[in-house]
Every structure is written in structure tokens, then in C-alpha cells.
Design a protein around this nucleic acid. Structure first.
Lengths: 128, 128
DNA sequence: CAGCCGTTTGACGCTAACGTCAAGCCGTGG
DNA sequence: CCACGGCTTGACGTTAGCGTCAAACGGCTG
């Protein structure tokens, strides 16, 4: 069992294993300011909050965003506790717009692929 | 007026301008086999078909795919006229699965952002 | 005490997707 | 004729996002 038996503390390798990424990647995200685990001596110790951020990071990556974009995105969560609320709203609107474009692109692509598949399936049937 | 007055032939700069990309990028896509314009002498001449492929390429990029992925994707369209139909079906299924995952990611993200925005808006109201 | 793991910080390497010259060819207008 | 804009290939530069050592430290375990 790792650091503690309760699930509040994680070693870097725990998270790497859990999410199928490298420890190098995690350190890289920290270097880019996307994560800020605590330290015990020099060793990184991750809490649930860090783990939650990592999940957001990975989802952002699956969506094709750069780490820089993801960094901004994460700051939206943090910023909600700060003063710059109206600035935040602008950022969120921008991002929503681009995501909705992406959503349309995606839906178009998916239906095109389904169409292609249908054509292909038909040809298979004819061939027997 | 460029090459011809009817809209079947395009110069590289025409397409670059139309889609807001560089001519360098277009040449790069050709080098990677994503485009195969005709030549008149050494000069590239693009037809509607090439332009259609370029549109697909750019949509693929907006969706965060690599040129390599996009190349495979384009081959799905071409392959539909070939023999390897069942192999094609497998490819399409794979891609559909990953796109649908991406769609879910996207919907989750969008609703989270809307939630953040609502919180932020509320705070603005209170502040007056 | 000696290994051995897991961890750390550099530092260099690598691929993708172009940007950015450079040097040269071609056709047209003044 | 010659400048000029647009086209070509070639080569090198650049950024992002890690991979891959290397060298060193700290803590458990036999």
C-alpha cells in the first residue's frame, strides 16, 4: 500500500499508473504550472484536489487542447473564488463558443462516417 | 481573376486566402500525401475535389487530429471505391468510438463551463 | 550494511507541423 | 528589357510535449 491507506494522499507513480501516463508527464504539468502538489522533503505528495485537476488536464488533452489552453481553463475554476469575475465570464464565453463549433464539427464528422459505413456495409451484403 | 473564371481551378494562393492558412501549409499537406493537386509545368493546380479534401483536413485539425490521423480518415472516402471494404468498416468503427468519447468529453466540459458561468453571473448580480 | 526501489533534478533527444529564409524560374506590364 | 509578383524546391529554425538517460538521494528490507 502506498503513502497512506486512506485515499487522500498519492505518490506520483500512483497517479501515473491510475491514468496510464508517465511520471515525466506529471512533472511536466507541474513545471507548466498545471499542478502544484505539496512536498514532503523533495518528494511530491498529491491530494484529491491535485488528482481532480489531473483528470481535467487529461480530458482537455483528449479534446485536443494545448497545455497552455488547459492552464487557462483550470484557472477558471480557481478564479471563481477571486475578484476578476467579469473577466472570467468573458473567457468562459469565448471557450464555450469554440467548444460549440467543435461540437458541430464533431457531429458532422460522425454522421459522415456513419454514412460511409452504411455504404460499405451495403457493399458487403451484396458481395455475400 | 485567377487561373480561370469558372470555379473549377484554383491556385495555391487562392486556397490559402480562402481558408486563412499559409501556402507553406498546403505544400506541407501535399508532401504528407493529404493532397495531390495536378501540375501545369511545376505549378500546382487545384480542382474542386482537392478543395473538398482541404476542407476535411481543416475540420480534422479543428478536432485536434494529427495529419497522420487525417490521412487515414481521408483514405476512408477513397477506400469506399476499393475492395478493402470490411477492413474499412473496422477503421470506421474505431474512429466512431473515439469520436463519441470525445463528444461526451465535450458535452461534460460545456456543461461545466456553463455552471461556472452561472456562478460567476450570480456573483456579479449580488455585487450590483 | 548492502541492495534495491522510488524519487528527485537536470540535460539532451525527438516528432509534428509548420515558419522563414534563400535562390531560382516564369510570365506580364511599363 | 527589366523589374515585379507569384510560383517552385531546399534547408534550416521553432514550439509543444513529452521520452530518455544520468547522477544522486532517502528509506525499507534481508
Amino acid at each position: 500500500m502506498t503513502p497512506q491507506d486512506n485515499r487522500d494522499l498519492f505518490a506520483i507513480a500512483d497517479l501515473a499508473r491510475e491514468f496510464g501516463i508517465s511520471t515525466r508527464a506529471i512533472r511536466f504539468y507541474e513545471a507548466k504550472g498545471l499542478l502544484a502538489p505539496e512536498r514532503v522533503g523533495a518528494t511530491r505528495v498529491f491530494r484529491r484536489r491535485d488528482r481532480a485537476r489531473l483528470i481535467l488536464i487529461l480530458r482537455g488533452k483528449r479534446l485536443g487542447f494545448s497545455l497552455r489552453d488547459i492552464s487557462d481553463y483550470l484557472s477558471l475554476y480557481d478564479a471563481n473564488r477571486t475578484q476578476q469575475v467579469s473577466l472570467l465570464i468573458g473567457k468562459v464565453d469565448e471557450r464555450l463558443a469554440s467548444l460549440e463549433t467543435q461540437l458541430e464539427d464533431l457531429q458532422t464528422t460522425i454522421s459522415e462516417l456513419k454514412e460511409i459505413k452504411k455504404l460499405a456495409d451495403d457493399r458487403l451484403d451484396k458481395a455475400g
